[in-house]
Design a protein around this nucleic acid. Structure first.
Lengths: 210, 210
DNA sequence: AAAATTATCCCCTTTATTGAGGTATTTTAT
DNA sequence: ATAAAATACCTCAATAAAGGGGATAATTTT
């Protein structure tokens, strides 16, 4: 029932029932075959290079090395494998760390089987499958706060500061006087109630003013 | 055929054929009704508050004020309306600006009609609908470069620098000597071939080292 | 176990930047 | 018209930055 063009899928998941459930589901779908299943990242790291999957379904909450910690090592072992996170966790921190470490998709475990299979296909096809709520969180992370107390110019200058530029350089690049930049910074500090560059950047980033 | 619980959809699109095509499609789908269609953002800004749509489909390439420029104003006019970008453009800059300005989804115009209707429903439901390639770009934007020349510690220190902290403060927070921080910075500058904080941050961000 | 990398600490110098206290004019929106 | 925003100027002391020269301990990797 499987041939050379089948998409090779591997699974790292500690719960044997879930793991075998996915394996059964995917293995019995036309066009897909199971390249390997592993109960831990340690186990996976030993065998995965040999199994050479096209797509890896990865649980993040695992005993021993967590899925996220293992991500860079897995990427190194099988650089061309597309990694899909499949987890119950929906914390922002975990999501962004996973994506930052090379995951190319993020699904929650309530995803119905047919969507999981579709996601495997999508990630092979250059897409970035995400569960709806994950996608919304990811999109939200880009969104500026539209009730910032900073004026446009102040925002612009704080952005420049956050790139590490000196006030002199900012003045030169915006074609304004150094004293003007200093005035703006003074006003920014007052508005954000801070007394240093670092605190201003922190406050502004936390509140998505920049 | 429509009742009070229908999802009210508005469209801003300059091409009359496309605009009426969408309107026809959505208006004839059960559970949806057209709250308004506009050929320009100027027109929309005049009427949209009265039309009060639940979801707004927005083209980005428009004559006059572009869709992206109008986004903050539209958000202000109808704060509770979910805005979905529907465009042929797939440039990173545009995507991130749109999401940063309050768009809650981003679809390309090759999206089949049933997917557009599904996306309208998804965004109402708290999701963040994106075309597959857009989702991949968004995910890629989080991904670190796994072949950074910087060591873990150097990366950590450069991250701290990018938050605006002084070397002294970084030293204190990492429980290492100021001189150690300075040495790391020296090495970072050499590796990135730069001679200032701003250039180091710029180089590191461009290459996704931080 | 050797080699390479990484992390740590110390000295020196000079210039540039920062933050805080003011005041005041011009430009841009509403 | 009248706010709000952007612009510019002043002084001051304290700190940070950048560049150079070293050395050694602690890890990893091979």
């Amino acid at each position: 029932m499987h041939h050379d063009a089948d998409i090779r899928v591997a699974i790292i998941e500690d719960d044997v029932t879930i793991r075998e459930g996915y394996a059964y589901l995917i293995g019995n779908t036309d066009g897909y075959k199971i390249a390997g299943t592993y109960a831990s990242c340690e186990d996976a790291l030993r065998k995965i290079a040999h199994d050479d999957p096209d797509v890896l379904l990865l649980d993040v909450e695992l005993p021993g090395i967590s899925g996220i910690e293992a991500l860079p090592k897995l990427k190194k072992a099988v650089p061309d494998t597309h990694i899909l996170i499949l987890t119950v966790y929906e914390e922002e921190m975990l999501i962004f760390r996973a994506l930052g470490n090379g995951a190319e998709g993020y699904l929650t475990k309530n995803t119905p089987p047919d969507k999981i299979v579709a996601a495997i296909h999508e990630v092979m096809d250059g897409g970035g499958p995400m569960s709806a709520n994950i996608a919304r969180m990811v999109i939200s992370s880009f969104k500026r706060n539209d009730s910032s107390p900073l004026t446009r110019r102040e925002t612009e200058i704080l952005e420049q500061i956050s790139t590490g530029k000196s006030r002199k350089r900012i003045a030169d690049e915006l074609y304004i006087d150094l004293e003007t930049v200093k005035s703006h910074i003074k006003n920014i500090y007052h508005k954000l109630d801070v007394h240093s560059k670092a605190d201003a950047i922190k406050a502004a980033r936390e509140n998505k003013f920049i």
